[in-house]
Design a protein around this nucleic acid. Sequence first.
DNA 1: AATCAGATTGACTAATCAGTCAATATTCTA
DNA 2: TAGAATATTGACTGATTAGTCAATCTGATT
Lengths: 185, 185
Amino acid sequence: MDKKQKVMISARKLFAENGFYSTATAKIAKEAGVSNGILFHYFNTKDILIQELYNDLKDRLFKYTADQIYKGATLKESIYTLWLASLEWNMENPEDFVFMRQFENSHYFNEQIYGNHRFVQMSLELAEKGIDQGILKKVPPMLLVQTMSGMVETSVTYLKAHPENAANQDFKDRLFELAWDAIKK
Amino acid sequence: MDKKQKVMISARKLFAENGFYSTATAKIAKEAGVSNGILFHYFNTKDILIQELYNDLKDRLFKYTADQIYKGATLKESIYTLWLASLEWNMENPEDFVFMRQFENSHYFNEQIYGNHRFVQMSLELAEKGIDQGILKKVPPMLLVQTMSGMVETSVTYLKAHPENAANQDFKDRLFELAWDAIKK
DNA sequence: AATCAGATTGACTAATCAGTCAATATTCTA
DNA sequence: TAGAATATTGACTGATTAGTCAATCTGATT
């Protein structure tokens, strides 16, 4: 594995464990088993490393979720699949979840960056389609997207605090009901 | 105003602007117009300052919202009042909103701390009452509470990015509809 | 007036950290 | 194979930071 990859993996882990600022670049390099200098060879600044990490995560989330939506699905099925895949991705990658929460609530984040990601674009298309079909509430599509993201976040947070429900498919479906009822007409 | 208060006000402002770690204690003291030493006289460590700030904010949110719920209100009215008051409090105190988002997504935060606040206790009581009355979905009350909080957060984030709607009461009512539909039976 | 506890100061320190750089190693290309 | 380009090292630095401390001030109590 190349050293850029190694740095990104270690960075994700340490950032999630200790936050952006409590994690020294030197520690990241050490954990990755590479020299201090090579980190700055690939990432000019610590901020750039953090930004790239975020973009990479969003890309991975996109690929993971988009793959699971099949062509002939109804709109509700597609949204359900997207919701469940997001939930499971976040449950399976707890470090990435923490990292993303931190990033999206930091000064690094803005709506511009957010709106341009393929994951958000895909979600927006679904929202618009649903509004056109009269299935979803007639509100700005971006609001529906953010509502769904927020509900995924709430669900993940709840399941982490109450892991006894994490494997219960019925309970997950119940969680989806809350999200769906929020956006459906 | 006593110097402890001055420190807390400056800290809230600077933390929200630059995050916990980019804000030096010395800068907080300077902004507050007090000496470096007095900050550590009142708050043994920077972490304690951050924790106290959070508790203080939650208390203030509780007072602000609880005051507006009147005795004879129906459950839906009470929840609406709570929701709207929370929304407005967050809109009117943008620094506090940012601070709270950062705190609740940092390692400082855990469910224990969260669940013990009066604000959450009050929300929990409403949720339980609603379930008993058959008005709200029969899911764990804490899930309903977190869902409502999440929806407030989503609404605030959306309104900040689209300020043209911020003064529109109809739009706010529309936002409440999404939240209400999520939790109602 | 004498005493005392708490408030307040700001210079100081030891540690930490992001980023640099000159040197060396490795890989690629012609 | 020569030479260019890129990868890699790790010691180093200048800046910043949380927290300390000895000294002074203030106001209340006896």
